[in-house]
Design a protein around this nucleic acid. Structure first.
Lengths: 226, 226
DNA sequence: ATTCTGCATACTGTATACAGTATGCGCAGC
DNA sequence: GCTGCGCATACTGTATACAGTATGCAGAAT
Protein backbone atom coordinates (compact mmCIF):
# COMPACT_ATOMS: atom_id res chain seq x y z
CA UNK A 1 0.00 0.00 0.00
CA UNK A 2 3.03 2.25 -0.20
CA UNK A 3 1.96 3.42 -3.66
CA UNK A 4 -0.67 5.67 -2.12
CA UNK A 5 0.48 9.27 -2.41
CA UNK A 6 1.57 10.59 0.94
CA UNK A 7 1.96 8.51 4.08
CA UNK A 8 0.78 11.35 6.25
CA UNK A 9 -1.75 8.90 7.59
CA UNK A 10 0.03 5.96 9.13
CA UNK A 11 -3.14 4.01 9.17
CA UNK A 12 -3.76 1.49 6.41
CA UNK A 13 -7.18 0.31 7.55
CA UNK A 14 -8.48 3.86 7.35
CA UNK A 15 -7.38 4.24 3.77
CA UNK A 16 -8.69 0.80 2.93
CA UNK A 17 -12.05 1.68 4.42
CA UNK A 18 -12.18 4.79 2.29
CA UNK A 19 -11.27 2.87 -0.84
CA UNK A 20 -13.82 0.12 -0.26
CA UNK A 21 -16.49 2.65 0.66
CA UNK A 22 -15.90 4.36 -2.66
CA UNK A 23 -16.06 1.02 -4.48
CA UNK A 24 -19.42 0.37 -2.89
CA UNK A 25 -21.08 3.72 -3.50
CA UNK A 26 -20.00 3.95 -7.11
CA UNK A 27 -20.95 0.37 -7.84
CA UNK A 28 -17.59 -1.27 -8.53
CA UNK A 29 -18.72 -3.69 -5.83
CA UNK A 30 -22.21 -4.73 -6.80
CA UNK A 31 -25.07 -4.83 -4.34
CA UNK A 32 -25.40 -8.16 -2.61
CA UNK A 33 -21.94 -9.23 -3.70
CA UNK A 34 -20.00 -11.40 -1.34
CA UNK A 35 -16.63 -9.99 -0.37
CA UNK A 36 -13.73 -12.33 -0.99
CA UNK A 37 -11.23 -11.16 1.57
CA UNK A 38 -8.16 -12.73 0.01
CA UNK A 39 -8.88 -11.40 -3.46
CA UNK A 40 -9.79 -7.93 -2.28
CA UNK A 41 -6.85 -7.65 0.10
CA UNK A 42 -4.32 -8.60 -2.56
CA UNK A 43 -6.02 -6.27 -5.03
CA UNK A 44 -5.61 -3.44 -2.54
CA UNK A 45 -2.08 -4.45 -1.68
CA UNK A 46 -2.64 -5.09 2.02
CA UNK A 47 -3.10 -8.18 4.14
CA UNK A 48 -6.40 -9.47 5.37
CA UNK A 49 -6.08 -7.98 8.84
CA UNK A 50 -6.40 -4.27 7.99
CA UNK A 51 -8.95 -5.13 5.32
CA UNK A 52 -11.10 -6.92 7.86
CA UNK A 53 -10.90 -3.98 10.24
CA UNK A 54 -12.06 -1.74 7.43
CA UNK A 55 -14.88 -4.13 6.57
CA UNK A 56 -15.98 -4.14 10.18
CA UNK A 57 -16.21 -0.37 10.21
CA UNK A 58 -18.13 -0.33 6.96
CA UNK A 59 -20.54 -2.85 8.42
CA UNK A 60 -21.07 -0.56 11.40
CA UNK A 61 -21.77 2.27 8.96
CA UNK A 62 -24.33 0.15 7.17
CA UNK A 63 -22.55 -0.22 3.84
CA UNK A 64 -21.97 -3.92 4.43
CA UNK A 65 -23.75 -6.71 6.21
CA UNK A 66 -22.07 -9.68 7.80
CA UNK A 67 -23.15 -13.28 8.13
CA UNK A 68 -21.42 -15.70 10.51
CA UNK A 69 -18.90 -17.94 8.77
CA UNK A 70 -19.82 -16.40 5.43
CA UNK A 71 -18.21 -13.02 5.81
CA UNK A 72 -19.26 -9.66 4.51
CA UNK A 73 -21.73 -8.78 1.76
CA UNK A 74 -22.39 -5.49 0.05
CA UNK A 75 -25.73 -4.38 1.43
CA UNK A 76 -28.40 -4.91 -1.23
CA UNK A 77 -30.62 -2.05 -2.31
CA UNK A 78 -33.92 -2.80 -0.64
CA UNK A 79 -37.20 -1.01 -0.26
CA UNK A 80 -36.84 -1.21 3.51
CA UNK A 81 -33.43 0.44 3.70
CA UNK A 82 -34.52 3.03 1.18
CA UNK A 83 -37.57 3.99 3.21
CA UNK A 84 -35.48 4.22 6.36
CA UNK A 85 -32.65 6.22 4.84
CA UNK A 86 -34.81 8.59 2.84
CA UNK A 87 -37.12 9.02 5.78
CA UNK A 88 -34.29 10.38 7.85
CA UNK A 89 -33.11 13.28 5.75
CA UNK A 90 -36.34 15.32 5.99
CA UNK A 91 -35.90 14.99 9.74
CA UNK A 92 -32.19 15.63 10.08
CA UNK A 93 -31.42 18.23 7.45
CA UNK A 94 -33.96 20.90 8.45
CA UNK A 95 -32.97 20.60 12.09
CA UNK A 96 -29.32 21.02 11.15
CA UNK A 97 -30.17 24.09 9.10
CA UNK A 98 -32.11 25.56 12.00
CA UNK A 99 -29.09 25.03 14.25
CA UNK A 100 -26.76 26.45 11.63
CA UNK A 101 -28.76 29.65 11.34
CA UNK A 102 -28.68 32.10 8.48
CA UNK A 103 -25.61 31.70 6.28
CA UNK A 104 -22.95 34.35 5.87
CA UNK A 105 -22.91 36.28 2.59
CA UNK A 106 -19.83 34.33 1.53
CA UNK A 107 -21.54 31.01 2.12
CA UNK A 108 -24.62 32.22 0.31
CA UNK A 109 -22.47 33.12 -2.68
CA UNK A 110 -20.80 29.71 -2.66
CA UNK A 111 -24.22 28.04 -2.50
CA UNK A 112 -25.41 30.01 -5.51
CA UNK A 113 -22.28 29.14 -7.44
CA UNK A 114 -22.62 25.45 -6.60
CA UNK A 115 -26.22 25.54 -7.72
CA UNK A 116 -25.23 27.07 -11.05
CA UNK A 117 -22.68 24.30 -11.53
CA UNK A 118 -25.34 21.76 -10.66
CA UNK A 119 -27.60 23.13 -13.38
CA UNK A 120 -24.80 22.54 -15.89
CA UNK A 121 -23.97 19.01 -14.72
CA UNK A 122 -24.17 16.43 -17.47
CA UNK A 123 -23.44 13.05 -15.91
CA UNK A 124 -25.29 11.45 -12.99
CA UNK A 125 -22.06 11.20 -11.03
CA UNK A 126 -21.39 14.89 -11.43
CA UNK A 127 -24.94 15.92 -10.56
CA UNK A 128 -25.08 13.79 -7.43
CA UNK A 129 -21.67 14.93 -6.23
CA UNK A 130 -22.65 18.58 -6.66
CA UNK A 131 -26.02 18.09 -5.01
CA UNK A 132 -24.39 16.44 -2.02
CA UNK A 133 -21.77 19.17 -1.85
CA UNK A 134 -24.48 21.82 -1.95
CA UNK A 135 -26.29 20.31 1.03
CA UNK A 136 -23.12 19.88 3.06
CA UNK A 137 -22.20 23.50 2.34
CA UNK A 138 -25.66 24.58 3.40
CA UNK A 139 -25.27 22.90 6.78
CA UNK A 140 -21.58 23.60 7.33
CA UNK A 141 -22.24 26.04 10.16
CA UNK A 142 -24.26 23.54 12.18
CA UNK A 143 -22.59 23.42 15.59
CA UNK A 144 -23.66 19.84 16.26
CA UNK A 145 -20.87 17.88 14.61
CA UNK A 146 -22.46 14.57 15.50
CA UNK A 147 -25.60 15.54 13.62
CA UNK A 148 -23.49 16.52 10.64
CA UNK A 149 -21.70 13.20 10.82
CA UNK A 150 -25.00 11.34 10.78
CA UNK A 151 -26.17 13.35 7.80
CA UNK A 152 -22.93 12.57 6.01
CA UNK A 153 -23.47 8.88 6.57
CA UNK A 154 -27.06 9.08 5.39
CA UNK A 155 -25.94 10.96 2.28
CA UNK A 156 -23.53 8.16 1.43
CA UNK A 157 -26.28 5.60 1.80
CA UNK A 158 -28.67 7.56 -0.40
CA UNK A 159 -26.02 8.05 -3.05
CA UNK A 160 -26.12 4.39 -4.04
CA UNK A 161 -29.83 4.59 -4.73
CA UNK A 162 -29.61 7.81 -6.70
CA UNK A 163 -26.74 6.51 -8.78
CA UNK A 164 -28.50 3.23 -9.50
CA UNK A 165 -31.67 5.01 -10.58
CA UNK A 166 -29.89 7.53 -12.77
CA UNK A 167 -27.81 4.88 -14.48
CA UNK A 168 -30.72 2.62 -15.31
CA UNK A 169 -33.26 5.26 -16.24
CA UNK A 170 -32.01 8.46 -17.81
CA UNK A 171 -33.72 10.42 -15.08
CA UNK A 172 -31.63 13.49 -14.43
CA UNK A 173 -31.67 15.01 -10.99
CA UNK A 174 -33.28 18.43 -11.16
CA UNK A 175 -33.09 20.04 -7.77
CA UNK A 176 -31.81 23.47 -8.74
CA UNK A 177 -35.27 25.00 -8.53
CA UNK A 178 -35.82 23.67 -5.03
CA UNK A 179 -32.40 24.88 -4.04
CA UNK A 180 -33.29 28.30 -5.39
CA UNK A 181 -36.37 28.38 -3.20
CA UNK A 182 -34.27 27.62 -0.14
CA UNK A 183 -31.72 30.26 -1.07
CA UNK A 184 -34.46 32.82 -1.66
CA UNK A 185 -35.86 32.24 1.82
CA UNK A 186 -32.39 32.49 3.33
CA UNK A 187 -31.74 35.68 1.39
CA UNK A 188 -34.91 37.11 2.92
CA UNK A 189 -33.68 36.06 6.40
CA UNK A 190 -36.59 33.64 6.64
CA UNK A 191 -34.90 30.73 8.40
CA UNK A 192 -38.15 28.96 9.14
CA UNK A 193 -39.27 29.14 5.54
CA UNK A 194 -35.91 27.82 4.40
CA UNK A 195 -36.23 24.85 6.75
CA UNK A 196 -39.65 24.06 5.37
CA UNK A 197 -38.40 24.33 1.78
CA UNK A 198 -35.45 22.11 2.64
CA UNK A 199 -37.79 19.52 4.10
CA UNK A 200 -39.82 19.54 0.88
CA UNK A 201 -36.62 19.21 -1.13
CA UNK A 202 -35.59 16.20 0.91
CA UNK A 203 -38.93 14.55 0.35
CA UNK A 204 -39.18 15.16 -3.38
CA UNK A 205 -36.35 12.89 -4.44
CA UNK A 206 -38.19 9.97 -2.97
CA UNK A 207 -40.92 9.11 -5.45
CA UNK A 208 -38.96 8.21 -8.61
CA UNK A 209 -36.61 5.92 -6.73
CA UNK A 210 -39.50 4.32 -4.88
CA UNK A 211 -41.25 3.57 -8.16
CA UNK A 212 -38.09 2.18 -9.73
CA UNK A 213 -37.33 0.02 -6.70
CA UNK A 214 -40.74 -1.53 -6.35
CA UNK A 215 -41.00 -2.36 -10.02
CA UNK A 216 -37.71 -4.10 -10.45
CA UNK A 217 -39.05 -6.95 -8.31
CA UNK A 218 -36.44 -9.32 -6.89
CA UNK A 219 -32.80 -8.33 -6.85
CA UNK A 220 -31.06 -8.92 -10.18
CA UNK A 221 -28.28 -11.42 -9.63
CA UNK A 222 -27.43 -10.55 -6.10
CA UNK A 223 -26.72 -13.16 -3.49
CA UNK A 224 -29.76 -12.81 -1.24
CA UNK A 225 -28.32 -14.58 1.77
CA UNK A 226 -27.83 -11.72 4.17
CA UNK B 1 -27.11 -2.81 18.75
CA UNK B 2 -28.45 -3.70 15.36
CA UNK B 3 -28.37 -7.42 16.07
CA UNK B 4 -31.58 -7.60 17.99
CA UNK B 5 -32.20 -11.30 17.75
CA UNK B 6 -28.99 -12.94 16.57
CA UNK B 7 -29.97 -16.53 16.10
CA UNK B 8 -26.53 -18.03 16.46
CA UNK B 9 -23.65 -16.26 18.09
CA UNK B 10 -20.67 -17.90 16.51
CA UNK B 11 -18.90 -14.63 16.50
CA UNK B 12 -16.32 -13.81 19.15
CA UNK B 13 -15.69 -10.20 18.12
CA UNK B 14 -19.38 -9.46 18.48
CA UNK B 15 -19.45 -10.75 22.04
CA UNK B 16 -16.22 -8.94 22.80
CA UNK B 17 -17.69 -5.70 21.47
CA UNK B 18 -20.70 -6.13 23.72
CA UNK B 19 -18.51 -6.83 26.74
CA UNK B 20 -16.25 -3.85 26.15
CA UNK B 21 -19.20 -1.59 25.43
CA UNK B 22 -20.64 -2.55 28.79
CA UNK B 23 -17.32 -1.93 30.49
CA UNK B 24 -17.28 1.56 29.00
CA UNK B 25 -20.81 2.64 29.80
CA UNK B 26 -20.73 1.42 33.38
CA UNK B 27 -17.31 2.90 34.02
CA UNK B 28 -15.13 -0.17 34.51
CA UNK B 29 -13.04 1.40 31.79
CA UNK B 30 -12.53 4.99 32.86
CA UNK B 31 -12.99 7.92 30.52
CA UNK B 32 -9.84 8.82 28.66
CA UNK B 33 -8.18 5.55 29.61
CA UNK B 34 -5.83 4.06 27.08
CA UNK B 35 -6.72 0.54 26.02
CA UNK B 36 -3.91 -1.96 26.43
CA UNK B 37 -4.79 -4.53 23.83
CA UNK B 38 -2.68 -7.36 25.20
CA UNK B 39 -3.96 -6.98 28.74
CA UNK B 40 -7.57 -6.61 27.73
CA UNK B 41 -7.50 -9.46 25.26
CA UNK B 42 -6.04 -11.90 27.77
CA UNK B 43 -8.48 -10.67 30.38
CA UNK B 44 -11.33 -11.44 27.99
CA UNK B 45 -9.81 -14.75 26.96
CA UNK B 46 -9.43 -14.00 23.26
CA UNK B 47 -6.56 -12.96 21.06
CA UNK B 48 -5.84 -9.45 19.90
CA UNK B 49 -7.42 -9.88 16.48
CA UNK B 50 -11.08 -10.20 17.47
CA UNK B 51 -10.52 -7.62 20.21
CA UNK B 52 -9.22 -5.14 17.68
CA UNK B 53 -12.18 -5.73 15.40
CA UNK B 54 -14.45 -5.02 18.32
CA UNK B 55 -12.51 -1.89 19.22
CA UNK B 56 -12.83 -0.68 15.65
CA UNK B 57 -16.59 -1.07 15.76
CA UNK B 58 -16.80 0.72 19.08
CA UNK B 59 -14.74 3.54 17.65
CA UNK B 60 -17.22 3.79 14.78
CA UNK B 61 -20.02 3.96 17.34
CA UNK B 62 -18.25 6.76 19.16
CA UNK B 63 -17.48 4.96 22.40
CA UNK B 64 -13.76 5.00 21.67
CA UNK B 65 -11.37 7.27 19.86
CA UNK B 66 -8.24 6.15 18.08
CA UNK B 67 -4.89 7.82 17.64
CA UNK B 68 -2.34 6.57 15.10
CA UNK B 69 0.33 4.38 16.65
CA UNK B 70 -1.16 4.94 20.08
CA UNK B 71 -4.24 2.79 19.78
CA UNK B 72 -7.67 3.25 21.27
CA UNK B 73 -8.83 5.46 24.12
CA UNK B 74 -12.09 5.52 25.99
CA UNK B 75 -13.76 8.70 24.78
CA UNK B 76 -13.52 11.32 27.53
CA UNK B 77 -16.64 13.04 28.83
CA UNK B 78 -16.48 16.47 27.27
CA UNK B 79 -18.78 19.41 27.09
CA UNK B 80 -18.67 19.24 23.30
CA UNK B 81 -19.80 15.63 23.02
CA UNK B 82 -22.40 16.20 25.68
CA UNK B 83 -23.92 19.13 23.80
CA UNK B 84 -23.94 17.13 20.59
CA UNK B 85 -25.40 13.97 22.06
CA UNK B 86 -28.00 15.65 24.23
CA UNK B 87 -28.92 17.98 21.40
CA UNK B 88 -29.90 15.04 19.26
CA UNK B 89 -32.48 13.34 21.42
CA UNK B 90 -35.01 16.21 21.39
CA UNK B 91 -34.77 15.96 17.61
CA UNK B 92 -34.83 12.21 17.14
CA UNK B 93 -37.16 10.95 19.83
CA UNK B 94 -40.24 13.07 19.04
CA UNK B 95 -39.95 12.26 15.34
CA UNK B 96 -39.75 8.57 16.14
CA UNK B 97 -42.81 8.85 18.34
CA UNK B 98 -44.69 10.63 15.58
CA UNK B 99 -43.80 7.81 13.18
CA UNK B 100 -44.71 5.19 15.75
CA UNK B 101 -48.18 6.67 16.25
CA UNK B 102 -50.46 6.09 19.18
CA UNK B 103 -49.49 3.04 21.23
CA UNK B 104 -51.66 -0.02 21.64
CA UNK B 105 -53.42 -0.48 25.00
CA UNK B 106 -50.96 -3.25 25.85
CA UNK B 107 -47.97 -1.04 25.20
CA UNK B 108 -49.58 1.76 27.18
CA UNK B 109 -50.00 -0.60 30.10
CA UNK B 110 -46.39 -1.70 29.90
CA UNK B 111 -45.29 1.94 29.82
CA UNK B 112 -47.29 2.71 32.95
CA UNK B 113 -45.86 -0.32 34.71
CA UNK B 114 -42.31 0.63 33.76
CA UNK B 115 -42.91 4.12 35.02
CA UNK B 116 -44.13 2.82 38.38
CA UNK B 117 -40.97 0.71 38.64
CA UNK B 118 -38.93 3.77 37.79
CA UNK B 119 -40.54 5.70 40.64
CA UNK B 120 -39.40 2.96 43.02
CA UNK B 121 -35.85 2.72 41.69
CA UNK B 122 -33.21 3.24 44.35
CA UNK B 123 -29.83 3.11 42.64
CA UNK B 124 -28.66 5.28 39.75
CA UNK B 125 -27.99 2.21 37.64
CA UNK B 126 -31.51 0.95 38.15
CA UNK B 127 -33.12 4.31 37.45
CA UNK B 128 -31.16 4.89 34.27
CA UNK B 129 -31.80 1.39 32.96
CA UNK B 130 -35.54 1.77 33.59
CA UNK B 131 -35.65 5.21 32.05
CA UNK B 132 -33.90 3.96 28.92
CA UNK B 133 -36.17 0.95 28.75
CA UNK B 134 -39.21 3.21 29.05
CA UNK B 135 -38.13 5.33 26.10
CA UNK B 136 -37.30 2.35 23.92
CA UNK B 137 -40.67 0.83 24.74
CA UNK B 138 -42.35 4.11 23.85
CA UNK B 139 -40.76 4.11 20.41
CA UNK B 140 -40.90 0.38 19.73
CA UNK B 141 -43.53 0.74 17.02
CA UNK B 142 -41.47 3.20 15.00
CA UNK B 143 -41.24 1.69 11.53
CA UNK B 144 -37.91 3.34 10.77
CA UNK B 145 -35.45 0.85 12.22
CA UNK B 146 -32.49 2.99 11.28
CA UNK B 147 -33.85 5.86 13.31
CA UNK B 148 -34.35 3.50 16.25
CA UNK B 149 -30.80 2.27 15.88
CA UNK B 150 -29.50 5.84 15.98
CA UNK B 151 -31.54 6.56 19.08
CA UNK B 152 -30.18 3.41 20.69
CA UNK B 153 -26.65 4.57 20.04
CA UNK B 154 -27.38 8.03 21.37
CA UNK B 155 -28.92 6.51 24.50
CA UNK B 156 -25.74 4.55 25.15
CA UNK B 157 -23.68 7.69 24.80
CA UNK B 158 -25.89 9.66 27.15
CA UNK B 159 -25.85 6.88 29.71
CA UNK B 160 -22.21 7.51 30.59
CA UNK B 161 -22.97 11.12 31.43
CA UNK B 162 -26.02 10.34 33.51
CA UNK B 163 -24.19 7.64 35.44
CA UNK B 164 -21.22 9.88 36.10
CA UNK B 165 -23.41 12.68 37.39
CA UNK B 166 -25.52 10.45 39.60
CA UNK B 167 -22.52 8.76 41.11
CA UNK B 168 -20.71 11.96 41.95
CA UNK B 169 -23.67 14.02 43.10
CA UNK B 170 -26.56 12.22 44.72
CA UNK B 171 -28.88 13.70 42.13
CA UNK B 172 -31.60 11.18 41.48
CA UNK B 173 -33.25 11.10 38.12
CA UNK B 174 -36.85 12.13 38.48
CA UNK B 175 -38.58 11.77 35.15
CA UNK B 176 -41.72 9.94 36.20
CA UNK B 177 -43.77 13.12 36.20
CA UNK B 178 -42.69 13.99 32.67
CA UNK B 179 -43.40 10.46 31.57
CA UNK B 180 -46.86 10.75 33.09
CA UNK B 181 -47.52 13.86 31.02
CA UNK B 182 -46.55 12.01 27.86
CA UNK B 183 -48.71 9.04 28.78
CA UNK B 184 -51.64 11.32 29.57
CA UNK B 185 -51.44 12.91 26.13
CA UNK B 186 -51.20 9.51 24.50
CA UNK B 187 -54.18 8.30 26.54
CA UNK B 188 -56.14 11.25 25.17
CA UNK B 189 -55.05 10.32 21.62
CA UNK B 190 -53.13 13.59 21.41
CA UNK B 191 -50.08 12.44 19.49
CA UNK B 192 -48.88 15.94 18.82
CA UNK B 193 -49.08 16.91 22.48
CA UNK B 194 -47.20 13.74 23.41
CA UNK B 195 -44.43 14.61 20.97
CA UNK B 196 -44.10 18.06 22.46
CA UNK B 197 -44.03 16.67 25.99
CA UNK B 198 -41.41 14.13 24.94
CA UNK B 199 -39.29 16.92 23.49
CA UNK B 200 -39.50 18.81 26.78
CA UNK B 201 -38.59 15.63 28.66
CA UNK B 202 -35.54 15.15 26.47
CA UNK B 203 -34.41 18.70 27.10
CA UNK B 204 -34.91 18.74 30.85
CA UNK B 205 -32.16 16.25 31.71
CA UNK B 206 -29.63 18.58 30.22
CA UNK B 207 -29.15 21.34 32.79
CA UNK B 208 -27.81 19.43 35.82
CA UNK B 209 -25.26 17.54 33.77
CA UNK B 210 -24.22 20.71 31.98
CA UNK B 211 -23.61 22.44 35.30
CA UNK B 212 -21.69 19.50 36.68
CA UNK B 213 -19.57 19.18 33.55
CA UNK B 214 -18.59 22.82 33.27
CA UNK B 215 -17.65 23.09 36.92
CA UNK B 216 -15.38 20.11 37.11
CA UNK B 217 -12.92 21.99 34.85
CA UNK B 218 -10.17 19.84 33.36
CA UNK B 219 -10.59 16.10 33.19
CA UNK B 220 -9.65 14.36 36.44
CA UNK B 221 -6.79 12.01 35.71
CA UNK B 222 -7.62 11.15 32.15
CA UNK B 223 -5.04 10.99 29.44
CA UNK B 224 -5.99 14.00 27.34
CA UNK B 225 -4.20 12.97 24.19
CA UNK B 226 -7.08 12.08 21.93
C1' DA C 1 -32.84 -40.18 -14.07
C1' DT C 2 -32.87 -38.56 -9.35
C1' DT C 3 -31.52 -38.13 -4.73
C1' DC C 4 -28.48 -38.78 -1.07
C1' DT C 5 -23.93 -39.10 0.91
C1' DG C 6 -19.10 -38.42 1.43
C1' DC C 7 -15.12 -35.92 0.14
C1' DA C 8 -12.34 -32.11 -1.72
C1' DT C 9 -11.94 -27.31 -1.82
C1' DA C 10 -12.27 -22.62 -0.63
C1' DC C 11 -13.01 -19.20 2.57
C1' DT C 12 -13.79 -17.23 7.10
C1' DG C 13 -12.48 -16.74 12.12
C1' DT C 14 -8.74 -16.72 15.30
C1' DA C 15 -4.05 -17.00 17.00
C1' DT C 16 0.57 -15.73 16.71
C1' DA C 17 4.81 -13.78 14.98
C1' DC C 18 7.27 -9.77 13.42
C1' DA C 19 8.30 -4.93 12.40
C1' DG C 20 7.97 -0.12 13.29
C1' DT C 21 6.98 3.65 16.38
C1' DA C 22 6.13 6.12 20.79
C1' DT C 23 7.79 6.60 25.55
C1' DG C 24 10.43 6.82 29.69
C1' DC C 25 14.75 6.59 31.96
C1' DG C 26 19.63 7.15 32.52
C1' DC C 27 23.59 9.49 31.44
C1' DA C 28 26.45 12.95 29.54
C1' DG C 29 27.17 17.84 28.90
C1' DC C 30 26.59 22.51 30.43
C1' DG D 1 20.76 21.37 39.22
C1' DC D 2 18.99 21.38 34.60
C1' DT D 3 18.70 20.14 29.74
C1' DG D 4 19.34 17.28 25.76
C1' DC D 5 20.54 13.00 23.66
C1' DG D 6 20.34 8.00 23.16
C1' DC D 7 19.05 3.58 24.31
C1' DA D 8 15.81 0.09 26.24
C1' DT D 9 11.17 -1.20 26.55
C1' DA D 10 6.47 -1.64 25.58
C1' DC D 11 2.82 -1.40 22.60
C1' DT D 12 0.51 -0.82 18.21
C1' DG D 13 0.02 -2.02 13.16
C1' DT D 14 0.48 -5.62 9.84
C1' DA D 15 1.43 -10.11 7.94
C1' DT D 16 0.99 -14.88 8.08
C1' DA D 17 -0.20 -19.44 9.71
C1' DC D 18 -3.66 -22.59 11.24
C1' DA D 19 -8.24 -24.49 12.39
C1' DG D 20 -13.09 -24.92 11.66
C1' DT D 21 -17.05 -24.43 8.71
C1' DA D 22 -19.75 -23.88 4.41
C1' DT D 23 -20.12 -25.34 -0.43
C1' DG D 24 -20.00 -27.78 -4.61
C1' DC D 25 -19.14 -32.03 -7.05
C1' DA D 26 -18.78 -36.88 -7.88
C1' DG D 27 -20.32 -41.25 -7.31
C1' DA D 28 -23.39 -44.67 -5.25
C1' DA D 29 -27.97 -46.19 -4.14
C1' DT D 30 -32.78 -46.35 -5.47
Amino acid sequence: MQNVVALKRTNASEQVAEAVRAMIVDGRLAEGERINEVRLSTALGVSRTPLREALGRLAAEGALTSAPNLGYFVRPLTLEEFEDVYGLRPILDPEALRLAGLPSPERLARLEALNRDLAKARTPEEAIALDDAWHLELLADCPNRLLLEMIGNVILRTRRYELALMRETVNVLNATGEHDAILAALGASDLDGACRALKRNMQSGREPILAWLSERAPNPKADPRP
